[in-house]
Amino acid sequence: MPEKRVAISVQNLVKYFGGRKVLDGVSLDIYQGETFVIMGGSGCGKSTLLRHMTGAIAPTSGKVFFHGRDLTTMNDEEKEKLKRRFGMCFQSAALLDYLNVADNVGLPLVEHTHLDPKIIRMIVKMKLGLVGLQGYEDLMPNMLSGGMKKRVGLARAIALDPEIVFYDEPTAGLDPVVCAVVDKLILDLSHKLLLTSIVVTHNMESVYRIADRAAMLYRGKVLEVGTPEEIKNSKNPIVQQFIHGQIEGPIDFLRLDQESSELVDS
């Protein structure tokens, strides 16, 4: 096995939202080419962690390195350049409503390259082919089902041939079959395009299906990092409660609810 290179390194990340600590000293190393899953309950800070990695929000303290370069101290121009090497797949797909499927997927190409519209059209066709949606170019986003929207979002995320793709809850709100399809797609793309994939999810089936390694986040802290097998056999009672979805256990969901509602307020 070749030596693993660190693609993204998060060091001692702390983030406050309106006086509440959302991330409490998170440190993670994500290697190139792996599919890394960040799991945890609602409001545990996993989406916040993802947004730090994409550079969308700045931490209160701590650092995020992308191939050794610090994202948190970069100026906007450098960051924008770097962002072209990222792809992001949003929970709600976040397609622009007033553009059709082809224009949505082609948007990063139109904005960042000087390619001929015909070539862009071809690339878009190819990317849509990768997610199994060839022939849907002229549809508007509101004509698509939830699963199709996510796949279009995925096609857009890979439009610029990124090195890293971030997925925010890729399977949330989808039926089990479509979940499996999306999971398979994530795996296929990772292997075909040699991507580093970082997936945020609370769907345990997805974790077992796609993860090379996974991290369990709880109340802003990383509890456990390891292969799905290691997570499954974890001795930590919180992890066990989470992966089996039990009501009884150390996770006090009443308190969690209260805290996540505070988070929404802030």
Binding site: R84, A94, L107
Partner: peptide, 13 residues
């Protein structure tokens, strides 16, 4: 609907 954030993530101001 996260579309503004999507633009930012795509490096589109």
């Amino acid at each position: 609907n996260e579309q503004i954030e999507a633009l930012e993530t795509m490096g589109i101001n």
